[in-house]
Simulated assay, not measured.
Amino acid sequence: MSTDAEALANLLAQAEPRLERATKWGRLTFTLDQNWHHWICQIAESKKGAKLVFHKGVLLDDPAGLLTGSARYLREVSAERALADTEAIRALVRSAVEHQTDMVS
C-alpha cells in the first residue's frame, strides 16, 4: 500500500472509528456492520496515485467541492486533495455513514 493510501486509511479510521475494512473488489473497502452491499468508501490505487471513492458520493453534501466524477453513484477525491482538507473529508465520511443505505434515484 502506498504512503498516500495508508494516510487515507488512517484518516478514515479517525473520522469514523466504527468503520470496518477489508479488501473487496481488489480495493481496500470500508463499511459498517459488515454491510458490504452498501459499502461506504474505498481507497483505489493506480499509477496516477491513490484516491478515495465514495459509493454513494452523489448523495453527499460537499461544500468544499472536493468530489469529482460523473458516474451514477460514485464520486471520488484524490489523496492529495483529501489529505490537504482532512476536516472536509471527515464531514464527507460522516455524511456517507448517514446515507449508507439510502437509495439513489
Score class of each variant (00 low, 15 high):
residue 85 D to T: 07
residue 26 G to P: 00
residue 69 G to C: 06
residue 1 M to S: 13
residue 65 G to S: 05
residue 100 Q to N: 11
residue 63 P to F: 08
residue 52 L to C: 06
residue 70 S to D: 14
residue 89 I to S: 08
residue 14 Q to Y: 03
residue 61 D to Q: 12
residue 36 W to Q: 14
residue 89 I to C: 00
residue 43 I to N: 04
residue 35 N to I: 04
residue 32 L to R: 12
residue 60 L to A: 02
residue 66 L to D: 02
residue 82 A to N: 06
residue 54 F to W: 02
residue 19 L to D: 11
residue 13 A to W: 04
residue 86 T to A: 12
residue 57 G to N: 13
residue 47 K to L: 07
residue 42 Q to N: 14
residue 69 G to H: 00
residue 58 V to A: 02
residue 16 E to L: 11
residue 92 L to S: 11
residue 67 L to R: 05
residue 19 L to M: 09
residue 16 E to S: 12
residue 66 L to C: 08
residue 73 Y to R: 14
residue 32 L to K: 05
residue 76 E to R: 08
residue 101 T to F: 05
residue 40 I to N: 02
residue 59 L to G: 05
residue 83 L to N: 08
residue 3 T to G: 11
residue 34 Q to F: 00
residue 30 F to M: 07
residue 11 L to F: 03
residue 105 S to G: 12
residue 103 M to Y: 07
residue 44 A to E: 09
residue 76 E to Q: 15
residue 76 E to C: 04
residue 80 E to R: 14
residue 39 W to E: 13
residue 1 M to Q: 13
residue 81 R to W: 04
residue 5 A to P: 01
residue 67 L to Y: 01
residue 23 T to Y: 03
residue 47 K to R: 15
residue 75 R to V: 06
residue 67 L to T: 04
residue 76 E to P: 03
residue 88 A to W: 05
residue 23 T to C: 01
residue 46 S to N: 15
residue 6 E to M: 10
residue 46 S to M: 01
residue 48 K to S: 13
residue 11 L to V: 08
residue 92 L to W: 06
residue 58 V to C: 00
residue 33 D to H: 15
residue 30 F to P: 00
residue 26 G to E: 10
residue 64 A to L: 11
residue 59 L to I: 06
residue 100 Q to E: 12
residue 21 R to N: 04
residue 100 Q to A: 12
residue 80 E to C: 02
residue 45 E to D: 11
residue 76 E to M: 07
residue 64 A to M: 04
residue 39 W to M: 11
residue 65 G to L: 05
residue 10 N to W: 03
residue 37 H to Q: 14
residue 56 K to E: 10
residue 5 A to T: 03
residue 95 S to W: 03
residue 85 D to P: 10
residue 84 A to Y: 09
residue 95 S to P: 00
residue 75 R to S: 01
residue 31 T to A: 15
residue 46 S to H: 10
residue 21 R to P: 01
residue 2 S to Q: 10
residue 66 L to I: 09
residue 58 V to E: 01
residue 77 V to H: 05
residue 28 L to I: 13
residue 102 D to Y: 11
residue 46 S to T: 14
residue 37 H to G: 12
residue 49 G to E: 02
residue 46 S to Q: 14
residue 17 P to N: 07
residue 63 P to V: 08
residue 38 H to T: 03
residue 18 R to Q: 15
residue 97 V to L: 09
residue 94 R to W: 06
residue 55 H to R: 15
residue 59 L to V: 10
residue 42 Q to P: 00
residue 70 S to C: 05
residue 8 L to F: 12
residue 93 V to Q: 13
residue 10 N to Y: 02
residue 82 A to V: 06
residue 84 A to H: 10
residue 85 D to Q: 13
residue 28 L to P: 00
residue 8 L to Q: 08
residue 72 R to A: 04
residue 36 W to V: 01
residue 52 L to Y: 11
residue 9 A to W: 02
residue 42 Q to F: 02
residue 18 R to Y: 07
residue 71 A to Q: 05
residue 30 F to R: 08
residue 24 K to H: 12
residue 33 D to N: 14
residue 105 S to N: 07
residue 4 D to Q: 13
residue 84 A to D: 12
residue 26 G to W: 08
residue 44 A to Y: 14
residue 55 H to S: 08
